[in-house]
Design a protein around this nucleic acid. Structure first.
Lengths: 239, 239
DNA sequence: GGCGGCATTTGACCTATGTCATCAAATGCG
DNA sequence: CGCATTTGATGACATAGGTCAAATGCCGCC
């Protein structure tokens, strides 16, 4: 990851922000960045807080600075499904949206950088690289969604839970090849959120975690902290 | 749907093609269309034929002229999941793809209009509306994928089958509101394909169809022809 | 340090859906 | 025209995962 060197004209707030080097701001030049920075607003949400509602008109887009956001769809009778997770540097919001019919909630303490809708759309007009960056992001989201469709449609509970743990492991260490490696992290989701992501019940998630622990594929401390001694074993269990 | 009037300079092959008025060609002006038409190639595939392979490098993109294509993902052990369906006027292919890890097969007799990759990418460079059209298409695909994640993750077999039948009904008649309406069509998928789309076994699909027939929500002739006397009842069953 | 409230785990039980086997109907082929 | 092949329907049975209830562990708070 080549880090863009700090620059005199760069807005102070952006200097240490990873979105600058790894997120949307990466494709902006200094003057564009300055313009953007003049209109962005930073917000913080605690775990569980709703960030965008199901019905709310979209008046701002957002970039995740830190923390994790879950995108959810809810059926009338209350059943819900997490349809996407957003991590640091990810962009949130549907361009040209009529309605997204989708809500966004923080699953952990989250820091966002909000971009007014009008500005974002104006910049997209003018900035071809920005538009292209967004296209790539969207395609990545589509790939992820389809990958997850396989998990939801065809994998067993054991495979789903392993797939999820592996997914997070990949986020912590994107270089996980098929080599043995060790990863350790705090789960960004509660059991309930995991269940909603995996299309399972809380109890099944819990039982599968217990089973993974019994097999010593993972070690869990304090409910949330996961240690994976051998990511390859986990990956095999993920189907 | 405003149909673009035929034009003297318009390539002859495109005159009667619905992609011209409803698909990608809609955002092209006459000269661009002419250029494109000089390099496209029409192909035909029978039901079951593989159109793009899992591993094949993408050398062409395609537009569906008629028929239906299923996009599939396959796990090592052979389990498979349909992750998308492409109907007439839909565009197939992942721009900027490293690999899509996804195969495309005809589920019915299919007619495609192939566009060489290099040309498509060149046109995207020059043609802003084209790029934007593709972005919208991609977002639509993403919405569809997420909608389907809810179906796969949270709906019962009965709801899934109803959802599928309703999905096709919507394709036949996009104006289906919440009013009572009648729709009739031929299923574009075999029971096996439906099962792979719905994350169910063939038998379960078959049984659910039988149940829908028993409830007189649908009438089936010759295995494939479906008549839906009241789409609203079907929608309610779809969850 | 004890208490109340959550999140999680565990257990017992039940049901929806998968699996396997058979049958029936439709389709293609000589 | 009849046989073989494919596709779909149905029945019997097995089981993964859901549901409901209870136990446990953890945390902040008084």
């Amino acid at each position: 990851m080549p880090t863009i060197p700090p620059h005199e004209d760069e807005p102070r707030t952006c200097r240490l922000c990873s979105v600058r080097s790894n997120g949307i701001c990466r494709v902006l030049d200094t003057s564009q960045l300055a313009r953007l920075a003049r209109h962005t607003r930073s917000t913080r949400h605690e775990a569980g807080a709703e960030v965008f509602g199901d019905e709310t008109d979209i008046t701002t887009y957002a970039n995740v600075v830190s923390g994790v956001i879950k995108l959810m769809k809810v059926l009338e009778d209350g059943r819900q499904q997490v349809v996407g997770l957003k991590f640091a540097n990810d962009f949130i919001g549907r361009i040209h949206a009529a309605s997204n019919a989708l809500s966004a909630e923080a699953t952990s303490e989250v820091e966002l950088c909000l971009v007014p809708r009008a500005l974002m759309e104006a910049m997209l007009e003018e900035n071809r690289p920005l538009e292209r960056w967004l296209m790539k992001e969207t395609l990545r989201e589509l790939d992820e969604a389809r990958e997850w469709m396989v998990t939801l449609g065809r994998k067993s509970a054991a495979e789903r839970v392993a797939s999820f743990l592996y997914l997070i492991a990949l986020h912590v260490n994107p270089e996980l090849g098929s080599d043995t490696a060790t990863v350790e992290y705090d789960l960004p989701l509660t059991r309930s959120d995991m269940a909603d992501f995996l299309g399972l019940s809380i109890e099944t998630v819990s039982r599968q975690l217990t089973e993974l622990r019994r097999l010593e594929i993972i070690v869990i401390h304090n409910k949330r902290h996961v240690h994976i001694p051998d990511t390859e074993r986990l990956r095999q269990r993920a189907g």
